[in-house]
């Protein structure tokens, strides 16, 4: 096994394992042999319990796991992309307020139309995208010193934008009646939608965003030397910045629109990737995408089982995990720099 492929292989295996566990475990456990027979034999002669298991598996578990996978991948990938863009390892869609911006956009759209309808399915992610993009532009404007965004101003600007967006979101929620109150659970990262609809909703945005992020790996490497040197080395800095910010915001918005505000995945995963394997963005980006999917599948599994049969919103767990991690990284970053 070549050492280049090893991290990808490890994460791919972990992803398969996590996906498998997500299918089997939940408030109702599906025995392994039943799971296999459901997955690999036809729909014929299913009766009684088997039919119940089949419904749980194909209508609930698999789409839910697929959604978590896409959302985790989007958060991991966009976190790594923001870090490259801001040249700061603490950039995370949640910490820099982009997720809150997307949340506000989504809630604003939901206040008009709850996303069970065709129009809502289309409008909510679009509004989340607009919110995310607006938030990241404001954070950059507030936080940049010259062409770089130092940790202090980045986090302060993130806090400001995040608080503002959250306040507006709360206002919308309080002034609403009935259905929008369910959005509170959604905001904490509890998926309120089941079945394949949200998966199909998130898919195009996540794929487009992540694909654009991936092709910018090499230019992001060069960008770590600053705009000036990157330009002297032949990189069209504006184009890379523009595409990366749009793509990362698109991926974040996709995640938020269909799974709520889930923090810290975009911080934890790229960090672990850098620590274990490489700082090269051509590897950090794809590995963070894979790793984000793994991490969210596993935390979601925990969120669904810790207080079973009650399900915790997964965002609570990632925050419990992420906040201490964040402090640890902050401490480390005082003495050590990655690229």
């Amino acid at each position: 096994m070549s050492s280049r492929a090893r991290p990808f292989l490890i994460l791919a295996l972990l992803l398969m394992l996590a996906f498998f566990l997500s299918m089997a475990i939940g408030s109702v456990s599906i025995p392994i042999e039943t799971l296999f027979s459901l997955l690999f034999s036809g729909a014929a002669n299913r009766a009684g319990d088997l039919q119940t298991f089949a419904t749980i598996l194909f209508q609930l578990r698999i789409p839910h796991a697929a959604l978590m996978m896409l959302v985790g991948a989007s958060l991991g990938g966009s976190g790594a992309a923001y870090q490259g863009l801001f040249r700061n390892p603490l950039a995370d869609p949640y910490l820099i307020g982009v997720a809150s911006g997307a949340g506000l956009g989504a809630i604003a759209a939901m206040a008009v139309k709850w996303p069970y309808t065709q129009l809502g399915l289309f409008a909510v992610p679009l509004a989340a995208f607009a919110g995310a993009l607006l938030a990241v532009l404001i954070v950059y404007q507030l936080g940049h010193v010259g062409k770089i965004v130092p940790t202090t101003t980045l986090l302060l600007a993130g806090v400001a934008v995040s608080s503002f967006a959250t306040a507006l979101t709360s206002y919308l929620l309080i002034n609403s009646t009935g259905e929008l109150r369910r959005a509170l659970v959604w905001l904490l990262g509890g998926s309120t939608m089941t079945g394949w609809q949200p998966v199909l909703g998130v898919l195009p945005y996540a794929l487009a965003g992540l694909a654009i992020i991936l092709v910018n790996g090499y230019p992001l490497n060069v960008l770590q030397f600053g705009d000036e040197q990157a330009r002297q080395l032949g990189v069209n800095v504006e184009r890379v910045r523009r595409w990366t910010v749009v793509a990362a915001s698109l991926a974040t918005a996709a995640a938020v629109a269909f799974a709520g505000v889930i923090g810290f995945v975009g911080l934890i995963v790229p960090h672990v990737v850098r620590l274990l394997w490489s700082g090269d963005y051509r590897k950090v980006l794809p590995l963070s995408i894979l790793g984000g999917a793994v991490l969210l599948l596993l935390t979601d599994l925990a969120a669904r089982t810790i207080m079973s049969p009650q399900e915790l919103p997964v965002g609570i767990l990632t925050a419990l995990l992420g906040a201490p991690f964040f402090l640890w990284v902050l401490r480390r970053s005082k003495t050590q720099n990655y690229w």
Partner: peptide
């Protein structure tokens, strides 16, 4: 274009604030 210019002109900048992990 940026990359065309970078084939004609190279710059040795001052060694400051380089990303340390490379």
């Amino acid at each position: 274009r940026t990359e065309e210019r970078a084939r004609l002109i190279s710059v040795v900048p001052q060694a400051r604030n380089l990303p340390s992990g490379f």
